[in-house]
């Protein structure tokens, strides 16, 4: 018989195939990194050893990973709830700043006890994040203005606003730190080294979000709106209010990331505080695909890459390496996911 292909594409890909595909993708990406390092005259094995020792190999490294994961899980969730219904919130960076700013206001200017101040920070930060996306969200919902552009552009506004506050009215006059406010009066309690309560709360938020959307009428209605707005109208589901609600939720999640970052990890509002977490949230959300719980391992992977970048920097390798490795990994995983859908057909 002539050479006919014996492969077919699955419409539903079982998760174990995805897992295998991803494992191989990560291996392929790491091999390319290793080859590149070797071509630069560095020993990949030595560097790998160094990276492993200083990330998962030490108490300090693991604490660091948890601190990186905290904002990444939440910005990842922020982008993920949007993608789920075909909305792209590219402004998590700006909403993170907005949330951080609101938390800072409480942390600098009130002297409430922690059990009042910390919940207040969470509420204020989430509201601020939602407020930061309100105009793009409403414009998208009722005027069909692309949320991609509007939410992205507000990032720069938020970033400059934080620089202004941190160098101007809220600048630290005590220690004279550059582009930074004073240390906040209260912080999320640390429970394991530098790892603070924010990590647990972020974890709980992601789990709660996944369960909540899967089991709620809101989750179903928004899925319908995202998949086919005309069918939603036909079924009597108002599309515009639900687009608004999803985007506000997205903004609130990113705002929460800002709260934990400023009041748990950094303790001061600084220029550059967001550290690209908003943009990296897009990568985390894409890696997680359709599953909310998959945001957790995706955030862990991203945290590992960030940590690796820092370690590589200490050995005089450009900090842009992080971006290159991230890109490589996303590419490999996208290819791996696609290839995992193809199966050999067994004929008898």
């Amino acid at each position: 018989m002539s050479a006919v292909s014996h492969r077919t594409r699955l419409t539903v890909v079982p998760s174990y195939r995805i897992a295998i595909g991803r494992g191989l993708s990560i291996l392929a990406a790491l091999s390319i990194v290793a080859i590149t390092l070797a071509a630069m005259g560095r020993s990949p094995i030595e560097l790998a050893g160094l990276v492993v020792r200083s990330t998962v190999g030490s108490r300090f490294g693991i604490e660091d990973l948890a601190l990186f994961m905290t904002p990444l899980m939440l910005t990842g969730a922020a982008v993920w709830v949007g993608i789920r219904v075909n909305l792209w919130n590219i402004g998590a960076e700006g909403q993170l700043y907005a949330g951080a700013t609101a938390a800072t206001a409480i942390g600098l200017f009130t002297h409430w006890p922690a059990f009042v101040a910390l919940p207040a920070m969470i509420v204020a930060g989430m509201l601020a994040g939602a407020a930061w996306i309100f105009v793009p969200a409403a414009a998208r919902a009722w005027l069909s203005v692309s949320e991609i552009v509007t939410s992205l552009l507000l990032n720069f506004v938020a970033s400059l606003l934080v620089y202004y506050l941190a160098t101007g009215p809220w600048a630290d006059r005590v220690t004279g730190a550059l582009a930074s406010t004073e240390r906040l009066h209260m912080a999320f309690p640390e429970f394991w080294g530098a790892v603070h309560l924010g990590f647990i709360l972020a974890l709980a938020t992601v789990i709660g979000l996944g369960v909540g959307l899967a089991k709620s009428r809101f989750g179903y209605e928004t899925a319908v709106c995202g998949s086919n707005p005309q069918a939603a109208h036909y079924a009597g589901i108002g599309v515009a209010p639900r687009i608004l609600a999803v985007l506000l939720l997205s903004g609130a999640l990113a705002g929460l990331a800002g709260v934990f970052e400023v009041a748990g990890t950094v303790h001061r509002l600084q220029g550059g505080l967001a550290n690209n977490y908003g943009y990296l949230g897009i990568v985390v959300a894409l890696l997680a695909r359709g599953s909310c719980l998959a945001l957790i391992p995706a955030a862990l992977l991203m945290a590992l890459i960030l940590d690796t970048g820092i370690v590589l920097q200490t050995t005089q390798i450009s900090s842009s390496a992080v971006l290159a490795i991230t890109g490589l990994l996303v590419l490999a995983i996208a290819a791996g996911d696609e290839l995992a859908a193809y199966v050999r057909v067994n004929r008898t």
Binding site: A223, V224, S227, N228, Q230, A231, Y234
Partner: peptide
């Protein structure tokens, strides 16, 4: 398909 169904769900 356009009106009464969500093809991707």
């Amino acid at each position: 398909l356009k009106r009464a169904l969500m093809p991707g769900l």
